[in-house]
Design a protein around this nucleic acid. Sequence first.
DNA 1: ATCAGAAAGTAGCAAAAAGATACTAACTAA
DNA 2: TTAGTTAGTATCTTTTTGCTACTTTCTGAT
Lengths: 221, 221
Amino acid sequence: MEGYDSSQYEKLSLAVDLLVFTIEDDRLKLLMVERSEDPFAKMSALPGVFVGIKETLDEAAERGIEEETGLKDIYFEQLYTFGEVDRDPRMRIVSVAYMALVPIEKMNYHAGERTLSARLVDVEDLLSSDTKVAFDHKRIIAYARQRLANKVEYTGIAFHLVEEEFTLPKLQKVYEILLGKPLYKANFRKKIAPLIEETDFITSGEAHRPSRFYRLKKTEE
Amino acid sequence: MEGYDSSQYEKLSLAVDLLVFTIEDDRLKLLMVERSEDPFAKMSALPGVFVGIKETLDEAAERGIEEETGLKDIYFEQLYTFGEVDRDPRMRIVSVAYMALVPIEKMNYHAGERTLSARLVDVEDLLSSDTKVAFDHKRIIAYARQRLANKVEYTGIAFHLVEEEFTLPKLQKVYEILLGKPLYKANFRKKIAPLIEETDFITSGEAHRPSRFYRLKKTEE
DNA sequence: ATCAGAAAGTAGCAAAAAGATACTAACTAA
DNA sequence: TTAGTTAGTATCTTTTTGCTACTTTCTGAT
């Protein structure tokens, strides 16, 4: 392909759509914006940016995340590239979706330049209702939701949704939310024990036994 | 993003690079072409096509696969999108990599219009040697190799590398090649037993006990 | 015909992981 | 001091995996 004379092919616009997930009030939430302009004015959409001609995809994703949340250095990964011809009614735009995870304590966001507002949307509610979402963004969200559920089983992705020091009940809750089912406390602890290490801190002030804070062990993955 | 006036952003070329894998002589092989033009003339590269302005990514991938192999209806999936700025020395080209799997018995290929030849390359040999490959294609191949190894463990992706009716020794070999390690026969059979069903056919003519042909059960996944 | 070789296929145990239950521990608030 | 509530642990059962050793069924050479 790259030997082709590419000028015979029309170029197209490439965007990055961002799925910034967090967990708030024991629910999986996603950062969405309210569009100020047509098409889909006043509807919910994923935040996103166009990819600059001198910018890698990862750089565009980082830039977009920072514009929406002010955050740098949060975990993100490329999700999938959506390239239906008519996904944008105005013109051909191919979108590379990126997924980012951030603990709610660090979460921050604000309306962008061309959006009315930004807010956290309950993902399960959104997906199980027939709420309309701009473009093909609902499908993208469903795809990401699925990937999250898969990855929590065989990677440490859930750790990105808690702070660096976390209690096991809190971490377990994150696993349960992503998996969509309750876990046995004892088994959960057996499973993640080799990945974590104790800290000297415990919770206090709650009307029950305090829980210890742990952190992720550096040495394994 | 999609509310932006996109005209302020330069458009770019989008290509699909194809990784057509098969198994030949008990080795994982990949279809590669020899480039006829600069840059990287005479070097090995992945086959690929540019994405047309009225064409989805999947359609472009299907078209590319058919151009290279004459095959329709083979299994393929989107792998990852590579968007480094300088991955093509001439101009900015973002590439969506697609991975296709085909049993060697169906495999077919020929040099394209702008390539000198097409051939099957031993993947492990290529990756463990310091053979130069055009563009960032070696990295893409390494990424795909990894993904194949992962997916064989938790999906039925290996079935796409054997014909519809297959013997268990043959299927096991495919698993072993993708995983890069030997498996115990008895365990392997226990594991895939629920996924397959017997046929009435067995091999013949070999100097040992014949083996039965099976097929994938339709009902599960 | 019989037997050696070779790969297909099966039986069955041991070890490890996952599933599940029931308990004990430590805090606050009344 | 006690009731309520959640943290944390001990222990058993079940399932899966890891492994070995066996039996089966073919060809090809005595």
